[in-house]
């Protein structure tokens, strides 16, 4: 990666980290309700892959740990936070919440809360691309535990069969909710599982963004060149629990500390310092600047935004009635 790109991505990753940590705080303050699945520790995965792809052009879909993927695709952090606050200005107008961030204009096709649910949706998006003849690809980010669902295998089969332009990114963070991969899955290395479908696959360190980027570039090129699907496994770790009620009793603090020594942001920071492109002072300033932006703009916007109107409770269940009248009443022109 070029120095200026690495510096830009470092800035983004710091935003992603601080955004998530601020969500944690807002949750404790009961500003955010429901479930909240946070991304710290895995930032190099989404950033590395999307640096190799075209955010806003390629279609991205993921599970419930979705805030950072949305922001990386171009969603406004203010709207993502406002969604967590349940406000009308939120990216899904307060109807979706943390697990259902959407930004169709930026081709972020949403976060879905059934584990594995996005697999066939991603293949369907790829099918639509194939029919329309565009050069976009579909990228499906999911965790390792999703691969134990039946639709994983159904989707791999169809994607390979029809040579669909879809990249499956498996962020293997070693835990499915509170059960370790060794205790839930017969094969720890997920890329081995797709060999049966004749889908090319690769695995790499998910903590070093440059490593992710290099592997993702090959994966994206493969899919965009019309060769069909690709499966990329990234070995990573989530620092926080699965969701907010999770006290992480299923793993040791030593294990967590070991992973934190390979923190994706620090790896990139230290490399840039070593390359003479960044000083520690600059990094600390960046963190402060990011916090100020989150506080003064993102949180302020979310706090001050209006609630949805109760009169609009049933809005968005169906398409706008007026536009559908010919089919609802049979009085087509």
């Amino acid at each position: 990666m070029k120095i200026e790109d690495k510096k830009r991505v470092l800035r983004e990753m710091v935003l992603h980290r601080r955004f998530e940590e601020r969500c944690y705080q807002a949750y404790i303050e009961r500003k955010i309700g429901g479930f909240l699945h946070l991304y710290p520790g895995q930032e190099a995965c989404c950033n590395g892959v999307m640096e190799a792809a075209r955010p806003g052009h390629d279609y991205v879909i993921t599970g419930y740990r979705d805030h950072v993927h949305a922001i990386k695709c171009g969603a406004d952090p203010k709207e993502v936070m406002a969604e967590l606050y349940g406000k009308e200005t939120g990216s899904s107008k307060g109807r979706g919440g943390s697990m259902h961030i959407f930004d169709a204009d930026k081709r972020f096709m949403g976060g879905y809360a059934l584990v594995g649910g996005p697999f066939p949706l991603a293949a369907g998006i790829a099918k639509a691309i194939q029919l329309k003849g565009g050069d976009e690809i579909a990228i499906c980010f999911l965790g390792d535990a999703a691969n134990n669902q039946g639709v994983f295998h159904e989707t791999l089969n169809m994607a390979a069969l029809w040579k669909l332009p879809v990249l499956f990114v498996c962020e293997n963070n070693l835990y499915g909710i509170g059960t370790s991969i060794e205790r839930s899955t017969a094969v720890v290395h997920q890329h081995k599982r797709v060999a049966a479908y004749n889908i090319p696959a690769d695995e790499c360190d998910g903590q070093d963004i440059e490593v992710v980027y290099e592997h993702a570039r090959k994966a994206v090129d493969h899919v965009r060149s019309g060769n069909g699907p690709f499966f990329l496994e990234l070995m990573t770790y989530r620092y926080r629990g699965h969701s907010m009620s999770d006290s992480r009793g299923y793993r040791s603090r030593e294990e967590e500390e070991l992973w934190k020594q390979r923190d994706p942001i620090f790896i990139l920071r230290d490399r840039l310092i070593k390359e003479g492109a960044l000083t520690m002072d600059e990094f600390e300033a960046l963190e402060k600047e990011t916090d100020a932006y989150i506080e003064n703009e993102v949180i302020k916007f979310s706090e001050e935004s209006p609630e949805p109107r109760v009169e609009d409770l049933e809005k968005y269940v169906f398409a706008d009635r007026e536009t559908q009248l010919p089919w609802l009443t049979g009085k087509a022109a």
Binding site: G124, I125, I129, L131
Partner: peptide, 26 residues
């Protein structure tokens, strides 16, 4: 075959695939 698709016997999979395609106007 691109528009009349014989699917595998994978109801959950192909139904989801159709739904995903419909997000893009198919």
């Amino acid at each position: 075959p691109l528009r009349v698709m014989d699917t595998p016997i994978s109801e959950g999979g192909f139904t989801g695939l159709g739904i995903g395609a419909s997000f893009l106007g198919v």
